[in-house]
């Protein structure tokens, strides 16, 4: 698991977005698990550098994600976030560079 590649939690080809998790900064607070309206996240088993369990997508539930970004808004450490591969006018493109 290389440090410099963010694990992509899920990839939605048609709507062309993917859910990223900055594993090492996650504090393991489970806020995203409970904020997600479709409930597709659950706490994973591995520990990260902050000795906290990080969230992961439940088996086969990846396709139910509607990119509502509640988990992105609800994360206190900016760890979990949705990035659209499609053209996105504001900040996301800059971050890609």
């Amino acid at each position: 698991m290389s440090w410099f590649k963010i694990p992509k939690l899920l990839e939605n080809k048609e709507k062309n977005f993917s859910l990223f998790l900055n594993k090492n900064r996650c504090g393991g607070c489970q806020a995203c698990v409970y904020v997600c309206p479709t409930g597709i996240l659950e706490m994973g088993g591995e520990l990260n550098m902050r000795i906290a369990y990080t969230p992961r997508v439940k088996e086969g539930k990846g396709k139910y994600c509607t990119a509502c970004k509640r988990c992105e808004y609800g994360c206190p450490d900016w760890c979990i976030y949705i990035l659209d591969e499609s053209e996105k006018e504001n900040m996301a493109k800059k971050a890609k560079a």
């Binding site: 410099f4 504090g27 489970q30 206190p76 450490d77 900016w78 900040m91 971050a95 890609k96």
Partner: peptide, 28 residues
């Protein structure tokens, strides 16, 4: 780690240090 969450670099400490996570308790 790339690609970083775009809004981290907009926060004050992120802008200052390039990378930041809030110092508050987990889940605050």
């Amino acid at each position: 780690e790339k690609p970083e969450n775009p809004y981290v670099l907009v926060s004050y400490a992120g802008h200052l240090l390039g990378n930041y996570s809030s110092r508050l308790c987990a889940g605050c």
